[in-house]
Design a protein around this nucleic acid. Structure first.
Length: 289
DNA sequence: ATTTGGATTACCT
DNA sequence: GGTAATCCAAATG
């Protein structure tokens, strides 16, 4: 009931931060600028003051939890005072660039993490990417039909799963990719919110498949990471239990999933965290009076 | 050589 | 809230 309303309120709040500049979510499907020709600007430099937009290997060389938060624009190895949420960019063969701000991640810590594919130090042909240098992609097939995309971090067998993006560019191409790659023939058009709000959905939307396994996010021509626009402050990040790992005992409960608080683009909102947030918000409202 | 199950999604009641 | 879909690869014999 109040569920939907709450979500709208959250979206709205996040849409219009008090001081404006940080984030703005499109109110309606936005038509993309022409994507017919090759890049109209360099892949490596954005218009932002000549600052290199592409993140290099050093960014990925931090522990999994730190990297998982850094993807969301929080602390970590970002040179202060840079509080940028990171943008994943995928350049299709025809030159179309698809962009999405990373809003949800999960950290997998390596051998000791019972929920990780690398648990117990298992190293197999499939999960080799987890053990390669930070910034290496680990893409694997799940449930026989979907892909998940991870980025290797510092630490043996540690990596970060990308779980959700806020689509920023190439939305129509994403919609088409999702439409054609989706299993059902069925066909209502997907809402913007449905494009990238899940680990396998974002892989479909960006046309990421097994062929991207073990590629280097720092140097690959078809996929890379850019610093988003700088914000005045770090985004609020929620830490919650990871999704879809019923087994793994105590490890299933650890707060190793991270998402941008209040973002409507997140795949799963943590109920407990949400209640706490509301309680805090209410408390601070009450204090204001 | 066989068996088992999954870091999910979409559609059902 | 429940569950079918779908197949690779890890685990086991």
């Amino acid at each position: 009931m109040g569920q939907k309303k709450q979500r709208l309120l959250e979206a709205k709040r996040h849409q219009s931060p008090p001081d404006g500049t940080r984030t703005s979510y499109p109110k309606e499907p936005r038509l993309e600028p022409p994507t017919t020709l090759g890049p109209q600007r360099s892949i490596y430099f954005s218009s932002l003051k000549g600052r290199p937009a592409r993140l290099g290997s050093e960014f990925f060389d931090q522990p999994a939890v730190s990297l998982a938060r850094a993807f969301l624009g929080q602390g970590g190895a970002n040179p202060a005072p840079s509080y940028a949420e990171q943008v994943l960019v995928r350049r299709l063969d025809d030159g179309t660039e698809l962009r999405g701000r990373i809003v949800e991640t999960e950290a997998y810590l390596g051998p000791e993490d019972e929920a990780a594919h690398s648990r117990g130090g298992r190293q197999t042909p499939r999960n080799r990417g987890m053990f390669m240098k930070p910034g290496t992609l680990y893409v694997y097939l799940i449930y026989g039909m979907y892909f998940c995309m991870n980025v290797s971090s510092q630490g043996d067998g540690a990596c970060v799963l990308l779980r959700a993006l806020e689509p920023l560019g190439g939305l129509e191409a994403m919609r088409q990719l999702r439409h054609t790659l989706r299993k059902g023939v069925a066909g209502r058009a997907l809402k913007d919110l449905e494009l990238c709000n899940g680990p396998s959905k974002l892989c479909q939307a960006l046309a990421i498949d097994k062929s991207f396994d073990q590629r280097d996010l720092a140097t690959d021509e078809a996929v890379w990471l850019e610093r988003g626009p700088l914000g005045p402050s770090e985004p609020a990040v929620v830490a919650a239990a990871r999704v879809g790992i019923g087994h793994a005992g105590e490890w299933a409960l650890k707060p190793l999933r991270f998402y941008v608080q209040g973002s409507p683009w997140v795949s799963v909102v943590d109920r407990a965290a949400k209640r706490n947030t509301q309680a805090r918000a209410k408390a601070s409202r009450d204090e204001d009076f």
